[in-house]
């Protein structure tokens, strides 16, 4: 990028963060404002350091939920960065993204979307179409579209993000399961229940295989146990959970917030189909893992 944050700004930033984390905004804000004033006096308004300082102050406002004030500062910082660093600089993309986040927090999804799209274009141009940062930007864009109920677009963006994460970070990266979960939510919104179900099962199978090895007759992910229990309901007499389900205890040990969410979501889908035994099996497992 050619620009490096000067040491004194870094020190100031750390100080400001410290005050802000203690809730001492009455100290943090004037500190930023004084620094801004000094910087503008020595370097002029259109200087990268001023933009950085504006970003620091915007963070303090964001932490106070003063999104409007924060957005105002970021707009200013954006203009400076475009002028001093060029329109396609990663710093411009980052500022556009954060501006979109602030608009999003105020429910201004329509205004946020074009900013997010511009950030995406810059990142694609600078980093290439298959960089994880591009995937992250696609995620934010999907979320903004989701809030506007534009599900076809949401689906498209999540699919692209998933493709990037899978190819660049590998199938077991947490981002893959997270994005699959988000994509499944989008399927649900469109009434594509079968597609959602397939994705949820895929997440659970992968998580299981990662921890316990390939799936076979003696090593099944939780959803297979759930469906077997559903199919054999009434036929089987009560037995202890461990003997009844073979590797059930293993299936239950798969543990992460994403997997837990997936268990609950798939359980809701089972319930919708009247597969109550299967639903309960997953719920018990979700209950245990949290």
């Amino acid at each position: 990028g050619g620009y490096e944050i000067p040491a004194r700004l870094r020190t100031l930033h750390n100080l400001v963060i410290q005050y802000a984390s203690q809730g001492r905004y009455e100290v943090a804000v004037p500190l930023c404002k004084q620094a801004l004033e000094d910087l503008e006096k020595t370097s002029g308004h259109d200087h990268p350091d001023v933009a950085t300082m504006l970003n620091i102050l915007a963070l303090v406002y964001r932490d106070q939920n003063k999104y409007k004030e924060a957005a105002h500062l970021l707009n200013d910082a954006l203009a400076i960065r475009e002028k001093t660093l060029g329109k396609d600089h990663p710093a411009v993309a980052a500022t556009l993204n954060n501006l979109a986040v602030l608009y999003g927090k105020r429910g201004k999804y329509k205004e946020a979307e074009p900013l997010c799209k511009r950030a995406l274009e810059i990142r694609e141009k600078v980093l290439g179409k298959y960089h994880p940062d591009v995937a992250k930007q696609l995620n934010n864009l999907a979320l903004l579209c989701q809030n506007q109920a534009k599900y076809a677009e949401v689906e498209y963006y999540y699919r692209r993000a998933l493709e990037i994460y899978q190819s660049k970070l590998g199938a077991d990266d947490p981002n893959v399961a997270k994005t699959k979960n988000n994509l499944a939510t989008c399927y649900l919104k469109q009434g594509k229940f079968k597609d959602a179900e397939t994705l949820y099962k895929d997440i659970l199978t992968r998580a299981h295989e990662r921890d316990f090895g390939s799936v076979n007759n003696d090593n099944k992910p939780i959803w297979m146990h759930a469906e077997e229990r559903e199919e054999s309901k009434g036929k089987q007499k009560e037995a202890g959970p461990y003997t009844e389900y073979g590797s059930w205890y293993k299936a239950c040990k798969v543990d992460s917030p994403t997997v837990n969410t997936t268990l609950k979501s798939l359980s809701a889908l089972y319930r919708r189909q009247g597969k109550l035994e299967a639903a309960e099996t997953l719920e018990e497992c979700a209950g245990k893992s949290r």
Partner: peptide, 20 residues
């Protein structure tokens, strides 16, 4: 329920904005 997943999703801030 099904809302669980979407409730988790949040727009992500880019912290690199201070490192340029």
């Amino acid at each position: 329920d099904q809302q669980g997943a979407s409730r988790q999703q949040q727009l992500e801030w880019d912290d690199s904005t201070l490192t340029y």
